[in-house]
Simulated scan of single mutants.
Amino acid sequence: MEHAASVGGAPVSKDRVEALLEAVPARDRETRPEALARADRQRRRWATQVVVIDELAQKACAERSLRGAGNCATSHDGAAPEEQPITALPAERDVADLGSIVAVALAHSSAARTLLEHLEREQQIPEEAAYDYYDRNRDRFLTPAALRRGADPFHETSDLLPYDEVRDGILHELRRAAARRAFFDWLDRARADVVYAPGYEHPGDPSHPDHEHRH
């Protein structure tokens, strides 16, 4: 079998998985042969997930007529990897809570980023939700002077930045959180159409003996 997986019946080349493995250095520092072999197997399964997310995102972007959605590590014909170092793409603070597979997919797949940005634009956050967030998280909106003197944000409203000054930032944060939930919902549905070749399954798939689910 020459492909690592199929998405809707379309093959995903093993070459794309290998190209991603070359682009992303291994974090494991195993020295024992059996541990190193296991780490290599898991990295291959992990990389397959990243490439599959890119493939699924490209399909989703095409269906939505979204632009700026090129491939991640390689083109479909196995061409050389694009120069897209992970450190030059989404900042670590922006992807740290997304799990390693999705975070790396967003770092290496312009299609995944395009889809996430599209989902964020789609989110409609009610004004009531933004104010409720402001009211429930007052400690995040203390004035600098109030922070310095250790004011209690839940008793002295004069110590808070005015809602109108922080409203846009709150709406942006809530839209981003909603978009991430929508992205994961989309991915859960889209993965139902994926079939993996032996040795390329999800690293957390309990059907293979050395499965693990690491974030």
Results as ranks from 00 to 15, higher is better:
residue 88 A to C: 06
residue 59 K to G: 05
residue 87 T to C: 14
residue 94 D to P: 03
residue 30 E to N: 11
residue 56 L to Q: 06
residue 96 A to M: 14
residue 64 R to D: 02
residue 84 Q to S: 10
residue 77 D to W: 01
residue 100 S to I: 10
residue 94 D to N: 08
residue 55 E to G: 08
residue 56 L to R: 07
residue 111 A to K: 06
residue 31 T to G: 13
residue 72 C to F: 03
residue 52 V to Y: 01
residue 47 A to E: 07
residue 71 N to H: 11
residue 49 Q to C: 14
residue 83 E to P: 07
residue 33 P to R: 14
residue 48 T to I: 04
residue 71 N to A: 14
residue 37 A to R: 12
residue 43 R to N: 02
residue 52 V to S: 08
residue 56 L to A: 06
residue 66 L to Y: 07
residue 80 A to W: 11
residue 44 R to T: 07
residue 45 R to C: 14
residue 96 A to Q: 15
residue 33 P to E: 13
residue 84 Q to K: 14
residue 38 R to Q: 10
residue 52 V to T: 01
residue 58 Q to F: 04
residue 84 Q to Y: 09
residue 41 R to P: 04
residue 109 S to P: 08
residue 99 G to Q: 00
residue 64 R to E: 00
residue 78 G to Q: 03
residue 32 R to H: 11
residue 62 A to M: 12
residue 76 H to R: 12
residue 57 A to N: 05
residue 85 P to T: 06
residue 48 T to Y: 09
residue 94 D to M: 05
residue 38 R to K: 10
residue 61 C to P: 00
residue 57 A to F: 09
residue 57 A to D: 04
residue 42 Q to N: 12
residue 62 A to Q: 15
residue 91 A to K: 01
residue 69 A to T: 02
residue 42 Q to M: 12
residue 67 R to W: 09
residue 101 I to P: 00
residue 74 T to L: 07
residue 39 A to W: 00
residue 44 R to G: 01
residue 31 T to P: 03
residue 110 S to C: 13
residue 52 V to W: 03
